[in-house]
């Protein structure tokens, strides 16, 4: 009877240890994943643009690693590891947002330059028509230039259409030959 009791206690003890070891192993894996997420975040070109998020993520990872060592398998460790991984992702996304914001600023500058170029081009075009003595008093100037019937006429002095599709119909030029 005593032997059976000892055996049962041993089995229970071993099962408990095995369960704990499995949880610990799962947490080790989770810590490794959080570390990898942090490394990935640091690899972002704009990582330095989000110092607050990176500092918080690094601190959270330290706490998670510490808890995984001191309280392996605990709920507190599991929460800390989860939070560390999410903070690393948050830092990575903050860096990516900073990069995207800068790209958007650069794109807007290019857009403004292109818009200015278009305005200049629009302002030059009526002068070119005027130089050719094309009616410029508001009358429609259809097929104004011989050999360029693919360019529909327009009223001199009127603004070039702002709508992209409308512009495309007005200035449907063939490619440069």
């Amino acid at each position: 009877m005593r032997g059976v009791l000892v055996a049962v206690m041993l089995v229970v003890g071993l099962t408990g240890c095995a369960g704990q070891a499995q949880t610990g192993s799962r947490q080790d894996h989770a810590v490794a994943r959080a570390r990898a997420a942090m490394d990935e975040a640091w690899a972002e070109p704009y990582a330095s643009s989000a110092p607050g998020a990176f500092a918080a993520a690094s601190q959270a990872l330290e706490v998670a690693e510490s808890l995984a060592r001191t309280q392996p398998g605990s709920q507190a460790a599991a929460d800390a590891i989860y939070i560390a991984e999410r903070m690393a992702e948050r830092a990575r996304l903050e860096a990516r947002c900073a990069a995207a914001r800068e790209a958007l600023d650069a794109a807007r500058v290019q857009h403004a330059q292109a818009a200015r170029s278009l305005e200049e081009a629009q302002s030059r075009l009526p002068r070119a028509i005027g130089a050719l003595d094309i009616p410029g008093d508001g009358a429609p100037a259809s097929a104004t230039v011989p050999g360029e019937s693919h360019v529909p006429g327009w009223r001199t002095g009127t603004a070039w259409p702002t709508d992209v599709k409308e512009r495309a119909t007005v200035a449907d030029l063939p490619e440069e030959d």
Binding site: H111, A114, L118, A121, R124, L125, A128
Partner: peptide, 12 residues
């Protein structure tokens, strides 16, 4: 926009 500006410049 750049394409259209280029087309207008070409016409001019």
């Amino acid at each position: 926009i750049s394409d259209e500006a280029a087309k207008i410049n070409e016409v001019a």
